[in-house]
Structure formats: structure tokens, C-alpha cells
Design a protein around this nucleic acid. Structure first.
Length: 487
RNA sequence: GCCUCCAUGGUCAAGCGGUUAAGACGUCGCCCUCUCAAGGCGAAAUCAGGGGUUCGAUUCCCCUUGGAGGUGCCA
């Protein structure tokens, strides 16, 4: 069969790309790639009021960052363009008039104000508002004359008052509704532009889209679109309605509530590959135990049968784990290149061995934006509580800490080679001579020079990074403080 | 209100009439260890409720409940 798979991602340029949209784009892209088909970008900008400046560029940028390359689109061209709906403005009306000729649509002269009033009145009485087909009964000749005379009008779909409308979804199966629950929706607005309801049908047909993958919010209006296809005598594409990505059980992810967009995540220090991997598995299962996928692997593995029918909650904790896994596996130089800017926010590269620090940090990094807080103590001794000296397992308390510092301080003061190896040998020898246990000395020393309960390395590594003068100074300060507190 | 859809642990989820109901994140415990991570081992935790159908329901049907979406000259 020469049935070519052609999918489309059709966002509105209303701002940043939120994660639900990104996932829809990803699945749509994967469906095309898996089947050797074409992935098309179409911009749906028929609502001039909601359009955001630069919105189209944001779409391009997000898709590029995500690696979802499209075969046809506004900026790459293609055989069925233009790919921006506002640039297709003039081609919709003739199709609408064709429907009028066929009796499947009709011009309507009711003003927005009139309709709002009638709708409000109906709602006040607790009734369901539906357009009453008032203008359907205007004789065709009269309607044409009024249009020709320049009167404002819209074109409405003429939905049958009886019978059923239905369509088949690859995930949800047969979806059917009674026509009398459907409204005569506007197809062409007073400004001459089509509504989504109409444009999606025309464009999907003209662009020869084979599989329509879109958000769940269109599931209940899809039967209505099938009426349009039938009126035109066009073959319908196959549908897959995708579930939303949730913040919790009842709320979608939303920028307004402070939830991050895809680009926000990248700015925070998440890796593109990790986000893609995580998003792919949020609402889709490969049916195997495999959990790590590159984009290329997803292109092979994707199967719509694994798509979920219920919404998925976006779990930032699991994303962190995925991101950590990707970070830990990075070649060190790549890791260092990513980490360096974050470290330099709080550390002077001339003063610290950032490379060595990064080696210690890699297995401890889940998200790059955690780094500054993890290392800021190196630049400046933080305030800390002497209770940190007390550690049951290490068998230490302030008393022991003081003794430990007395063991370590002279050794460190006398050390000329401030390498980790020299530090290690000198300290271990002194500890052995003192009769104390390693932990009893090293724990307090580490607390004394870092002020932190946990650090990216042990006492020796931290002392090395901090440097001799500062390490000695911090130990002396700690000794003075402990002496004062214990007396 | 009406219409459509959905429903397995805290979260992502496998399952598609017979299973000890996978796996992952997280949580907890143990090991390793100069802290924390990383790594290794182990544990707890799920079929929303009620009716059917069936020899047998997580699985099929109905109802209830809960949730989502739609009900715009927004997409």
C-alpha cells in the first residue's frame, strides 16, 4: 500500500512551548519517523487576539532544541504550503461556500452581542445554549444579497438535528454522539479567518495528513469534524488523541502556576536527552523493560499501542533521577563543560581547582543548578552549629573534635606539599600515632573547614581544594571556638 | 446542567479471563565508606466501590463514585 504516513504538529503561537505540547510534538514526530513518513509543522494562528509576538520563533527554537526536525514547515518549505494558517487565509472561504451550496453550512448574520445576550438568558434559566439556526432559514438569495452588500456575517456548520456523528480513534475506539447535542459552530469568523474547527479539517486534508495526533481536548469535538469530511466527500485521517500532562491529579501543568517550560528546564540544568527520555515515557510504554532511550532509539521503538488513555502526572523527582543518570554517564570533559559555568557563579577559577572539584561532583549531580549551593562553602566559610561535631557513628562530639583538631592542625601547618596524596599520608600517620580512629579525626576536621554536614568529598579532598592558608585558618578558628564553648 | 472520555502502589506504569499482579522513581533497612552521593543487596506499598457475565474476574458488561475534557466568531 502506498499509504504514506504524514503527521503534523500544529501549535498556536501563544508563547512558550509547554511540556504537554512538547510531548505531543515528540509523539507526533516519532510516529512519522517510525513509519518512514513525514513530520510537518503547521502554525495555527487564526486567533489574532491571542497571538504572542515572537511566538512562531519560540516554536522553531523549542523544536530545534528538542531535536525534533520537521520535513515541512513555514521555515523549511514543502509541497503543500504555506504552513502558517494566516497565510492561507483566502483558501478557506471557498470551501465554506461549497458547504453552503451543499446545505451543510449557512451564512449567519446574528451579531456577537445578540448571541451573547441570548446565551446569557438561556444560561440564566439553566438551559443549555445552542444556536437556534435562526439564520438557516434566510432564503439563499437574500443571504447572498446581504453578504454582497457588505453586511457582517459568519458561516456556520449546519449540524443535523437528528442522527449520530462519530469517528474512530486509534486509542479510544469508536466515539459517537447524538447530533442534537452538537451546536452549529462557526466555520468562518466575521474577520474572514477560519476557526480551528474548520481550518484543521481543510488543512489536514489539503496537507494529506494521514494521522492526526493532537490533545485530548479535541476528542469530544472530533465527531463534528467527521460531518464536515462527509459533506465534502473526503476521506478522514486516522486519529490519536493524546492525554494531557498533569501537575497533580486534577491540574494540568501550567506556566501560570509556575510550572517550567521545556526551555526553563534546559536553563535549570536539565539535559535535553534526559527530558526527552523522561517525557517519552510519560504516557507511553515501550512494552519492554527498557527505560533509557535516545531519540534515535525512540524512533525505532515507538508504537502507538503503548500510548496511555489516562493523564500522567509530571514527576519532577523522577525527572531528576533521569537527569542524574544522564549526567553521571557523561564523558568527564562534557560534564566539566556543563558544570564550569555553574561553579564559576560562586567560585573564582583562579583560586580553586575546578576540574578536580568537578570530578568529585559528577556522581553527585542530578541537576546542574544544584551546584552553586553544593560548593559555595569553599569560597566562604559558612556559619554552622557546633552540634555538627557530634556524630554517633563516628564517635565524635565537640570534645573529641577539639582533640582531633589538635592532632591535625600541627601536621597540616607543617606540610609543604599540599597535594591530596601528601595530605592523606601525613594525616593518616598522625591519626595512627594519636591512637584515634580515622573517622574521629577526619569527621571533625571536615566540619571545621567546611561547616557542612555533607560535602562533595572527604576531609582530605576538601582541605586540598580549600588550600593550605585557608584550611589552617579555618582550623584555628574552629579550635578557638571549641575551646571557648567547652570551657 | 448536558455531552464525551478516563480509572492498577505516593508517582510513571506492565497486564489485554486463570500471574506469587512485572519493572522504574520515591520511601525504608542493610552493605560499602573520612561525610554526602554513586554502587550493591533487600523490604514495605496498587487492581476506587457495588452489581452482573463466567467454572474463574485487575481483565468483559452495567451502575455508583472520583477525575479530565467539551459545551466560544480560543485553539
Amino acid at each position: 500500500m502506498s499509504q504514506t504516513v504524514r503527521t503534523r504538529f500544529a501549535p498556536s503561537p501563544t508563547g512558550y512551548m509547554h511540556l504537554g505540547n512538547l510531548r505531543t510534538a515528540l509523539y507526533t514526530y516519532l510516529m512519522a519517523r517510525k513509519n518512514g513518513g513525514a513530520f510537518i509543522l503547521r502554525v495555527e494562528d487564526t486567533d489574532q487576539e491571542r497571538e504572542v509576538a515572537g511566538g512562531i520563533e519560540m516554536i522553531y527554537k523549542s523544536l530545534r532544541l528538542a531535536g525534533l526536525t520537521y520535513d515541512e514547515g513555514p521555515d523549511v518549505g514543502g509541497p503543500v504550503g504555506p504552513y502558517i494558517q494566516s497565510q492561507r487565509k483566502d483558501l478557506y472561504a471557498p470551501y465554506a461556500w461549497e458547504l453552503v451550496e451543499k446545505g451543510a453550512a449557512y451564512p449567519c448574520f446574528c451579531t456577537k452581542e445578540q448571541l451573547d445576550a441570548r446565551r446569557a438568558a438561556a444560561e440564566a434559566k439553566g438551559e443549555t445554549w445552542k444556536y437556534d439556526k435562526h439564520c438557516l432559514h434566510i432564503p439563499a438569495a437574500e443571504a447572498k444579497a446581504r453578504v454582497a452588500a457588505g453586511e457582517a456575517y459568519v458561516i456556520r456548520q449546519n449540524v443535523p438535528t437528528t442522527g449520530k456523528a462519530s469517528f474512530d480513534d486509534l486509542l479510544y475506539g469508536h466515539v459517537e454522539v447524538d447530533c442534537d447535542t452538537l451546536d452549529d459552530n462557526v466555520l468562518i469568523k466575521a474577520d474572514g479567518l477560519p476557526t480551528y474547527n474548520f481550518a484543521n479539517v481543510i488543512d489536514d486534508h489539503l496537507m494529506r495528513i494521514s494521522h492526526v495526533m493532537r490533545g485530548n481536548e479535541y476528542l469530544s469535538s472530533a465527531p463534528k469534524y467527521s460531518l464536515l469530511y462527509q459533506a465534502f466527500g473526503w476521506e478522514q485521517p486516522l486519529y490519536m488523541h493524546l492525554t494531557p500532562v498533569m501537575k497533580d491529579a486534577t491540574r494540568k501543568l501550567s506556566k501560570r502556576k509556575g510550572d517550567p517550560s521545556f526551555e526553563d528546564l534546559l536553563d535549570m540544568g536539565y539535559l535535553t536527552e534526559a527530558v526527552i527520555n523522561f517525557m517519552a515515557l510519560l504516557g507511553w510504554s515501550p512494552g519492554t523493560e527498557q527505560e533509557f532511550f535516545t531519540l534515535a532509539e525512540l524512533e525505532q521503538a515507538f508504537d502507538p499501542a503503548g500510548l496511555s488513555k489516562s493523564p500522567s502526572v509530571f514527576d519532577m523527582v523522577k525527572l531528576n533521577w533521569f537527569n542524574g543518570e544522564y549526567i553521571h554517564k557523561l564523558p568527564f570533559d562534557t560534564y566539566f563543560a556543563h558544570a564550569k559555568p555553574w561553579l564559576e557563579k560562586v567560585l573564582d577559577p583562579a583560586r580553586f581547582d575546578l576540574r578536580r572539584l568537578a570530578e568529585m561532583l559528577q556522581s553527585r549531580t542530578d541537576v546542574f543548578n544544584q551546584l552553586p549551593d553544593m560548593v559555595s562553602f569553599l569560597a566562604e566559610m559558612p556559619a554552622y552549629d557546633s552540634a555538627l561535631y557530634t556524630h554517633k557513628k563516628m564517635k565524635t562530639d565537640p570534645q573529641v573534635a577539639l582533640a582531633a583538631i589538635d592532632v591535625a592542625l600541627p601536621v597540616l601547618e607543617g606540610l609543604s606539599d599540599w597535594s591530596e596524596a601528601a595530605l592523606h599520608d601525613a594525616l593518616m600517620a598522625a591519626i595512627a600515632a594519636s591512637g584515634m580512629k580515622n573517622g574521629q579525626v577526619l569527621w571533625p576536621v571536615r566540619i571545621a573547614i567546611t561547616g557542612r554536614e555533607s560535602t562533595p568529598g572527604g576531609a582530605i579532598e576538601m582541605a586540598y581544594l580549600i588550600g593550605k592558608p585557608e584550611s589552617v585558618a579555618r582550623l584555628k578558628a574552629a579550635r578557638a571556638r571549641l575551646t571557648a564553648e567547652l570551657s
